[in-house]
Computed example of a mutant assay.
Amino acid sequence: MNLHALRLFHTIASTGSVTRASELLNISQPAITSQIKRFEKDLALRLLRPEGRGIALTEAGEQLAVLASRLFAVESQIEQFARDYREGAIGQIRVAATYLPAHFLLPAWIAKYKQAYEGVEMTIHTTDSSGALHKLQQMEADIAIYGGIPEEYPDSIATEQLFEDELWFVVAPGHRYASRHVTLTEMMKEPFVMRETGSSTRERLFALCRTCNAPAPRVALQFNGLHEAITAVIAGYGANFVSSLAVRDKVERGELSRVYVDGVQPINSIAVCTRKNEPLSAAAARFLDLIRSHPARSR
C-alpha cells in the first residue's frame, strides 16, 4: 500500500477539503488529486465524490478514513515512544548492587532519579560482589554498583570509582575502647560481630590483619545482615569493622563509638561497573550521570 497516498487521503478526510490539505502539506492541488486517483485505482475503490464545489467521502472512503485515523494515531504513539526512549524518559534499568550501596546509597539516588523520570522502571538486586559481577556479565543487569576492595575485572567490564569511604572500628559507648586510640593487636583481642563469610568488609579485616602481621579477628557472632550485626554491638557486645556510611549517624547520635586504631586508615571503594563497548540505554546513562553528580562522599 502507498502510505504516502494514504496520508494524503487522511488529510483530505480530516479537513474535508483538497484545498486545505494542499495548504497543510505544501503540495499543489493537481498533484494531490493525481495521487488520490492513482491510489483509488490501486485499491479498486472510489474514495471521494464531488459535492457542490467541494468533495465528500464515499461509503468506502468513510470506513477507510476511520482505519487511517487509527493507523496514524499509532504512528504518532510510536514516534512519541521512540522520542521518550531516546531521551531516557521511559525504559528499564536493572541494577545489581552489593549490600552497602544497596542499603545506604541507592535509595536516595533512586528517589531523586524517579522524581525526574517517573516512567522508567527500576529493578534492584542485592547480592555479593561476585553475584553482582555475574549478573552484569550474564546480561541480567545493566549496571553493577560495588562497595569493597577494588578487584581485577575481566576485560569485558569497565569500572569507574565513584568515591572512597572510610572503614571504622566501632563499639558500644560504654566499651573500654570507646573513643580511644589502640593498636591493631589490642583491637583483635575483642570479639567481633560481623556478617557472613563472603562479606567484602569481613574479608578486608582479615586481609588487614595479615598485612600488618596482627592476629586474625575472632568472629564471635555472625549475622546474614549488617543491621543485625550493628544492633548487637549497640546492645553492648563486641566490636564491628564497618563502612562509615553504615554507622556515621549512629556515632553522631552517641549510639556507637569509634575506636581509633593507630597506623591503620582503611578505605572502602564505591565503584560502578558496566559492560565495555556496549552503550547504556538513555535511561541508564542518565541514572549513572545522576550518581556521578550526587555521590555520598564520606565526610
Results as ranks from 00 to 15, higher is better:
Leu205Met: 09
Phe206Ile: 12
Val193Glu: 04
Ile230Phe: 08
Cys212Leu: 15
Thr197Ser: 00
Glu203Ala: 07
Arg204Asn: 02
Ala220Pro: 06
Val182Lys: 05
Thr197His: 04
Ile230Tyr: 06
Leu205Arg: 07
Met187Leu: 10
Cys212Glu: 12
Val193Ser: 09
Ile230Ala: 11
Ala220Phe: 09
Leu208Val: 04
Glu196Gln: 01
Glu190Gln: 15
Asn224Val: 01
Thr197Asn: 02
Met194Glu: 08
Ala229Asp: 02
Asn224His: 04
Met187Asn: 05
Arg202His: 10
Glu203Asn: 13
Thr183Asn: 11
Leu184Asn: 04
Thr231Glu: 03
Arg210Cys: 14
Thr183Trp: 10
Ile230His: 06
Phe223Trp: 01
Val219Glu: 04
Thr185Pro: 09
Leu208Ala: 10
Thr197Arg: 02
Arg204Thr: 04
Pro217Trp: 11
Phe206Glu: 07
Ala214Lys: 03
Ser200Gln: 07
Phe223Ser: 07
Pro191Glu: 12
Glu228Trp: 00
Val182Tyr: 05
Ile230Trp: 07
Thr231Phe: 01
Leu226Gly: 10
Leu205Asn: 07
Lys189Met: 15
Ala216Asp: 13
Glu186Lys: 10
Pro217Asn: 12
Glu228Asp: 00
Ala229Leu: 01
Leu226Asp: 08
Pro217Ile: 11
Cys212Met: 13
Thr231Arg: 02
Arg210Ile: 11
Val219Phe: 07
Asn224Phe: 05
Val219Thr: 08
Phe192Asp: 07
Val182Pro: 06
Ala214Ser: 08
Glu196Leu: 00
Met194Thr: 04
Ser200Pro: 10
Leu208Glu: 14
Cys209Phe: 02
Ala216Ile: 14
Cys209Glu: 04
Glu186Gln: 15
Arg202Cys: 10
Ala214Pro: 05
Arg195Gly: 02
Arg195Thr: 10
Phe192Ser: 11
Val219His: 02
Leu221Gln: 12
Asn224Trp: 03
Ser200Met: 10
Glu186Ser: 14
Ala220Cys: 03
Val182Trp: 10
His227Phe: 13
Glu203Phe: 09
Ala214Arg: 03
Cys209Gly: 07
Cys212Ile: 11
Ala229Tyr: 03
Arg195Pro: 01
Leu221His: 13
Arg202Met: 09
Ser200Arg: 03
Ala220Lys: 05
Phe223Cys: 07
Arg218Lys: 14
Gly225Gln: 09
Ala220Asp: 03
Glu203His: 03
Gln222Val: 00
Ile230Gly: 09
Ala229His: 00
Thr183Lys: 13
Leu226Cys: 13
Thr197Tyr: 02
Thr183Asp: 12
Cys212Gln: 14
Met194Ile: 03
Met188Val: 07
Ala216Cys: 12
Leu208Pro: 06
Met187Glu: 08
Glu228Cys: 00
Arg210Phe: 09
Val219Cys: 06
Arg195Trp: 01
Val219Arg: 06
Glu186Ala: 15
Cys209Arg: 03
Cys209Pro: 08
Met187Pro: 08
Ser200Glu: 06
Thr197Glu: 02
Thr185Glu: 15
Gly198Ser: 05
Gln222Met: 00
